[in-house]
Nucleic acid binder design. Structure first.
Lengths: 120, 120
DNA sequence: GGAACCTTGACACAGCCGTGGTAAGGTTCG
DNA sequence: CGAACCTTACCACGGCTGTGTCAAGGTTCC
């Protein structure tokens, strides 16, 4: 009983079956497959689907944006290029010094690392 | 001679005047204004416009994505929420351990901090 | 073996995005 | 003062996105 079929998963998560396939095609949530190729949604996938839905509506972003966020985290070159572009204006200093959020980011990553360590 | 008008800036950067205004509306590059409200593009703005163009074509992303990237760096809540969503699947361990890129990120931020320090 | 699922692939369609153009009005400058 | 700029605010339009639906075919199960 711990693996729902696509329509059942749709029902309990509030997505449509079509959207579940779409989400998979975007690369955000891949459901494991049965021997014959049926998608099987277990507890982790259902959880992610629900939190995804929350995340999108809470912050008013779309699947496209999430796809981009994912690309950002898998493509180091892109991440660096964008960071560099935003960081690079030594002239006209902005009202918020760049080093502030950099420091903040680093702190956050330390927090995430600590949290991740506690998961194992 | 160190401030170009919008059409001149368009000419030398390869954008259209229309796009320069659009880029500003997205919040990526705000040109300073003259007393009467004319946009004035100085060397820093021209530089950013050129590198922006490069960035977009090199990585095949659009202004919308850049806008989202900017939102990511200014909205700590959003950043944390997305990071948490991607990080949260202790079940089904992914092939690339999460802590790897976290560590990588932290290293990168240290590099960026060092680079920023050298700018001043 | 047939009903009720699942699969992929395609067509459809509203809505937003990038981009251009134009209109109505202010500014600069010869 | 008139030409040639600039401003904002709209309309237009092709293309991509999100979403639905349908078709053709495989799977499960009573």
């Amino acid at each position: 009983m711990d693996a729902l079929t696509i329509h059942e998963a749709a029902q309990t998560t509030g997505w449509s079956a079509r959207m579940l396939r779409y989400i998979e095609s975007v690369g955000l949530i891949d459901a494991p497959r049965s021997d014959s190729g049926y998608r099987l949604y277990g507890a982790p996938e259902l959880q992610r689907l629900r939190t995804l839905r929350e995340l999108l509506s809470d912050h008013d972003i779309g699947l496209g944006e999430m796809g981009f966020a994912q690309r950002l985290r898998s493509d180091a070159d892109l991440r660096d290029a964008i960071d560099t572009w935003f960081a690079a204006q030594p002239e006209r200093p902005s009202d918020i010094p760049e080093s502030d959020w950099l420091r903040f980011e680093q702190d956050k990553h330390e927090r995430l690392l600590a949290a991740a360590a506690q998961l194992t």
